[in-house]
Amino acid sequence: MINKLLFGIPLEFASGISSGSLVRVGTLLKDSATGRIVGHIQESGITQQLLSGITKVAVAPQLAMFDSVVNVAGLASSVYSNVQLNQLKKLVESLQVLQYANIGVAVAGIGVSAIGFGIMNAKLKNIESNLDQLSSKVDNHFQLLLERDLRQHYSQVYNLLEKSDLAHNYSNPVSEWMNVSSQLADESGFFRGELGYLIGSNSFNIDLFASLLRSLTICNSARIECLMLANEMRAAHDLSINIGQNYSQLFDNISPKSLVNKVGVEGDQSVIKNLVAGVRDITDAALTKPMLIESVIEQGVSGPEYISALKSEKEQPLLLIRSSNS
C-alpha cells in the first residue's frame, strides 16, 4: 500500500511548473487547468540529516546562493560524503524546480516530519548555542529571556524529545507519545508568544527571529510526529490545521517593508525580503499539511507505517505523495 503512495518527483513536473500547467501551493501540486491536486510534496527521512550539516541556514539563503555554498563548503570539507553531497544537490535542484523562494521551507520541514527526535534535539542544541551569542545585540526583554527563561524551555523540550525517542523501545509507547505531544504544546506556545512579542516590538533582530522560528517549527513537527506515531491520525490532522492557522495569524502581518523599518537602514534589504519569502513558504507549507495528512488517511495508511516509509527512503530527499483522488 505505502509503496504505491510515495514516489520521487518526476522530471516532467519541472516543465509543468515552469509552463504554468502545474502550480505549487504550499506543499501541494495542482493541475492549474482543472484544479485537481496532483500530489503532495513530502521530505524523506534524509532531508533534515542533510541540512543539519550546513550551518548558517537560519536566515534562509536564496537557493542559488545556497547551491554555491553547498558546492564550495561541501567539496572543501569532510562534512559530507559524495553520496550526501549529491543528495544535497538533488534537494536544492528539486526546491528550485518547485519554485520555493529559498531553503527556509526545507529547514522548517516539508510535509510530515520523519527525522526522529534525536536529530530534532541536535538541531535545537545548535540553535540554542547560536542564541547565546546574540545576547548583546537584543533589547532588555530578550536579554533576560536569553539568559534565563530560554534555557529552561530548551531544556524542557530536550527532555520531551528524549522521552519520545525512548518510547520507541516501550512495549506500549502510544500513551507516552500522546503525553509528549500535549506537553510540547506548551513549549510551542512559549516560542509562539516570544515570536509574537518580537514581531510586535520596535526593534527586530533577524537572527533571533530565525532561531525562534526554527525552534517553533521543530516543536510543532515533533507534536505531529508523536501523534502520527501514536496513529492518532485525525488528531494529527486537526493539530496541523491549528498550527497552520497560528502561523498565518502570527506571520501574515510581517512584510519586507515593516521589517526594514524596524531593522533600520543598515538592514540588508535582500536578506529581509528573502526571510519574509521563507516565512511565507513555511506558512503555506503548514496550511497545506492537513491536506497531505487527509490524503494519507483516505488511502488507509497508518501513521507509524507512513513515518517508517519516509525514514527508510535513502535516495530521494523529496518525495511526492499521490493524491487520494488521482
Binding site: 502550480v23 501551493v25 501541494l28 495542482k30 484544479g35 501574515d252 511565507r280 503555506d284 496550511l287 491536506m291
Partner: peptide, 13 residues
C-alpha cells in the same frame, strides 16, 4: 477549495 484559498491568500500577501 481550501487549496484555492491558500493560494489566493499568498497572492494577496
Amino acid at each position: 477549495t481550501s487549496a484555492d484559498n491558500i493560494f489566493l491568500r499568498r497572492q494577496i500577501l
